[in-house]
C-alpha cells in the first residue's frame, strides 16, 4: 500500500465528513430555520390556498338559494359514484313542470377529488372548499347532503 495515498485518503475522508457535519451543525445553531408548523395551535391563522381540493360544497347565497338544477351531469361524470342526486317534479305557478333537487348526496369517503363534477357542472353550482378536517367517528357522517334545508334554485339559472 502506498503510504502517501493511505494518509491522503484519511485526510480526504475526514474533510468530507466534516463538510457534512458543517451542514447539520449549521442548522442546529440556527433554530429559526425550523419549518415545523404547530398545527392545532395555529388553526386560527392557518390559511389554505383557495383552490385547495378539501371537499365539495354547494355555495348558497344569502337568500338560501343554490344554483343546482338537478341535471345529473356531475353524477354521470363522477368516476366512482360518490355523488347521487335525488330530484322531484316541481310544479311552478304557471303550471309548468320543472325538475328540482330534493337531495344532492355527496359521499366524501369515496371521493377522489378529481374535480370532474366541478369542472363539468353547467350552472357552476359546485365548488371546492379548503376544509381538510374531515375526521369523524362514524362512517355515516361522511355522507353529506350538499343542499341546505329549504333551499331553492336561484332565479335566472335554467336547468
Amino acid at each position: 500500500m502506498n503510504i502517501i495515498g493511505y494518509i491522503t485518503d484519511i485526510f480526504k475522508g475526514v474533510i468530507s465528513l466534516l463538510k457534512g457535519m458543517k451542514v447539520t451543525g449549521s442548522y442546529f445553531f440556527r433554530p429559526w430555520t425550523v419549518v415545523t408548523q404547530k398545527y392545532p395551535e395555529n388553526r386560527k391563522k392557518l390559511e389554505m390556498y383557495e383552490r385547495m381540493k378539501g371537499e365539495i360544497v354547494m355555495p348558497h347565497n344569502a337568500k338560501n338559494e343554490h344554483k343546482c338544477t338537478g341535471c345529473g351531469i356531475c353524477e354521470l361524470n363522477c368516476p366512482n359514484g360518490s355523488i347521487e342526486i335525488i330530484t322531484f317534479q316541481l310544479v311552478s305557478e304557471d303550471g309548468k313542470k320543472k325538475r328540482a333537487i330534493d337531495k344532492h348526496i355527496y359521499r366524501i369517503g369515496m371521493c377522489t377529488f378529481c374535480g370532474l363534477c366541478v369542472k363539468t357542472c353547467p350552472s357552476k353550482a359546485l365548488s371546492f372548499a379548503p376544509n381538510f378536517e374531515h375526521a369523524v367517528f362514524s362512517r355515516e357522517r361522511l355522507t353529506k347532503i350538499l343542499n341546505k334545508e329549504g333551499s331553492v334554485l336561484e332565479k335566472g339559472v335554467e336547468g
Binding site: 390556498y49 383552490r51 377529488f113 369542472k119
Partner: peptide
C-alpha cells in the same frame, strides 16, 4: 407541493391535466 396546491388544488395528487388542456388556469 405548495406551488402545486396553489395552482392545482392538490398536493400529491393533482389531477391537473385533462384531455384538451388543463383543469384550470395557473394561479
Amino acid at each position: 407541493l405548495d406551488i402545486f396546491e396553489e395552482s392545482t388544488g392538490g398536493r400529491l395528487i393533482q389531477s391537473y391535466n385533462c384531455p384538451g388542456g388543463l383543469m384550470n388556469d395557473i394561479h
